[in-house]
Design a binder for these strands. Structure first.
Lengths: 198, 198
DNA sequence: ATAGAAACATACGGAGCGTATGTCAATTTA
DNA sequence: TAAATTGACATACGCTCCGTATGTTTCTAT
């Protein structure tokens, strides 16, 4: 026990704090989550928190970084699994909508995160995700599938549509039925990016 | 002076508080805006605030209600000014993007509002705006311009795309150039809603 | 004219964040 | 290996700010 490396111990406490923060932020929201309760649940005090993350915003950044990495990995997975590039592009969008159904992602990534940290497109991992989508669209343009246009613009608007779709689904009385409608509309919108003849 | 009706005086204080709140929320953000400073700037105290709006969230609701009404009015105006129903629909989207360029709307309506009050699509005025867009799309479907689909789904996704476009523009180094790209992408996406032959 | 209520101000208590200080263990250095 | 230093975390404090409880004044109603 005492043979544990110092760096490893630190990583454990950071992980415990992030874990507790994810739970508290997701259930109570960022503003209503108390740092005292947070750290107590992790078996620590606010001292550890301020030492490791600087302030409350720093903790939120760490939480968002973790969730964002998970989302990015999942989107890569479904994209690489698709048969064609175009289908992979669509699958990414659908996967995004599905993920945003989870209350944790809704609350932390879509509501509190932007309000506290500002525009999500400036977050490190999010930009990675966006660049990935942008590159995919650029490839679709180069191969003649998608009409010539600004790839980043297409990626951002498509992402925005998917985001709003998930918000809509999450607030719906019958999420399952609404999910189907949203996916249909999403596919139609994407068609607008294709070359005119199809 | 003393002849002023009671109700009118109340309306004035409410207006003064909302005015000060709009300014403070827009510049400092909801969380960082102090109620003491707010009311002092309006020449009042927190007593007036809690008497009229209940709590801080109530004040935010009032502010959002005012801004939302202004946005709704402007969107109706540009829509009714267009030559065809389809062009009116597009103009509404562009107008939405333009409005979301204003920092006040960015901060209050798009960042803090959803974080504090929850899903915007449940706000009273927002639902009115959405219903308006939904009806427009439904009419476009009925007249054969837009392919048969769920009108509300189309309205929500299109709105989401427009919203993200405005967030992107606002954070850009060169908003003017980005605005052009976003509008182009927005029009392409909308084309996906049209009947296949055009 | 007086009673009542509404509009707003003042006073109070409590919660929470951030910082300053303290303590103990681990790593380093001689 | 023993002393010294640094790092990790806990404890203590002050300050701000929200919400409520109470007080005061002005308008309205009978």
């Amino acid at each position: 026990m005492a043979a544990k490396r110092r760096a490893q111990m630190v990583e454990e406490t950071r992980a415990k704090l992030i874990q507790a923060a994810r739970k508290a932020f997701a259930t109570k929201g960022y503003a209503a989550a108390s740092m005292d309760d947070l750290t107590a649940e992790a078996g620590l005090t606010r001292g550890a928190l301020y030492h490791n993350f600087g302030d409350k915003k720093g903790l939120l950044q760490a939480v968002i970084g973790q969730i964002d990495a998970e989302m990015l990995a999942r989107m890569r997975a479904v994209r690489d699994q698709a048969e064609t590039r175009w289908l992979g592009f669509l699958a990414e969008g659908v996967a995004y909508i599905e993920m945003a159904l989870e209350p944790e992602i809704q609350r932390i990534m879509l509501l509190d995160g932007p309000a506290v940290l500002g525009d999500p497109s400036l977050w490190p991992n999010q930009t990675a995700c966006l660049r990935s989508t942008t590159q995919t669209i650029q490839a679709l343009i180069d191969e003649g599938t998608v009409r010539p246009m600004d790839a980043e613009a297409a990626a951002r608007l498509i992402n925005g549509a998917a985001l709003n779709a998930s918000l809509w689904i999450a607030a719906a009385d019958d999420p399952h039925a609404v999910f189907a409608k949203a996916i249909e509309a999403f596919r139609y919108l994407a068609l607008g990016l294709l070359q005119t003849e199809r």
